[in-house]
Write a protein that binds this DNA or RNA. Structure first.
Lengths: 193, 193
DNA sequence: GTCTATACGATGATAGAC
DNA sequence: GTCTATCATCGTATAGAC
């Protein structure tokens, strides 16, 4: 293996899993220690604090969003194509980081300052680019004339649950989810006649 | 006042607010006591446990959903009209119970058995009625032929954030949100040409 | 109903031996 | 790096005086 087995990584992953299942505040270091078969105190040879694990997860995910939107934002496609790419980006991140995305989405609030503000800043920058793409599409008359913030929030939240649905070994793959979600979000529930 | 001031109700409301702001597990009884200007021990003259507050909130909201969908399910409207009513029901519950809805949506997991199972049963029953309405609309060719579970989950989550947007004193009222959301969900982001 | 006092287990984190 | 032992604090909840 290029990447050698790392106990540190193991602790981070087990931590994220517990945060996902029970919530950050309800997860104890003792439980995490049990999961990775160490005594509690031994954890601290690998990490500095419980919150450090949360920070790593949240920043990892928010950076994936930031990088993704920067690429989309920077290229020369139409607003319509960019929106399609954004939906694809979301679904890719959510399905590829099921555990981490959930922690990012629900538990970030438990970070303390100054990390919390740093995190929120990255999130805000992402949203600004998202909104400006929506604005462009509205201006060009391709998207409905609704508040872009309203559209963005609706879109973002509409996709937050898909990790529950994603079962790649049972025939529910990313491509199928992409197509269904795109149809639903772009042209709505109503069937054309 | 018809409804006399009740310290018990005050405690429940303050509790829900804290659960909403900090999460159930991260909220302490000491903090709640401070909020309602009592000593911790005095709280227990009004409530039996912290979890009791969570239970009250979660069951209150899930019953609003259950009652609402039963009415919609039982009447003679078309599937299209029923779906419109469901969207309206969601938005009404979310905006009228901003704090409680959030706790219901994010913190229910912290209930212990057997209350948790009881709660999940009510939620499931609600979802079944929702799905059967979607199935009917699909069968009649009014809705797109997508997995009704996929549609339901997307719809539900797309609306979970609107309490952040609802500012009735600043011109953002329920009627406006209803119209925007209906447009967006039924016919999508794409503008007709 | 509210208080003071307290029970007592769980919490995140550290010290120091090996 | 891992352990045992321990710390200080906080958690929910109770007992009993007033």
């Amino acid at each position: 293996m290029i990447e050698p087995y790392s106990k540190k990584k193991h602790i981070y992953q087990a931590g994220a899993k517990l945060f996902h299942e029970k919530g950050y505040a309800a997860t104890s270091m003792r439980e995490l220690a049990t999961q990775v078969q160490l005594e509690v105190s031994s954890l601290y040879s690998h990490i500095n604090s419980k919150e450090q694990i949360l920070q790593a997860v949240c920043f990892d995910v928010v950076k994936q969003f930031a990088d993704g939107i920067e690429t989309i934002f920077g290229d020369t496609h139409s607003a319509k194509q960019k929106l399609k790419d954004i939906i694809e980006l979301h679904l890719k991140i959510i399905t590829e980081n099921q555990t981490n995305f959930n922690v990012f989405n629900k538990e970030y609030i438990h970070m303390s300052e100054p990390k919390l503000s740093e995190f929120l800043k990255l999130k805000k920058e992402y949203e600004k680019k998202f909104i400006s793409i929506l604005k462009e599409g509205i201006k060009l008359g391709h998207f409905k004339n609704l508040d872009p913030v309203f559209i963005m929030k609706t879109l973002f939240n509409s996709m937050t649950w898909v990790h529950e649905y994603y079962k790649p070994n049972k025939g529910v793959d990313l491509d199928m989810i992409n197509k269904s979600m795109y149809k639903l979000l772009i042209s709505g529930i109503k069937k054309k006649n």
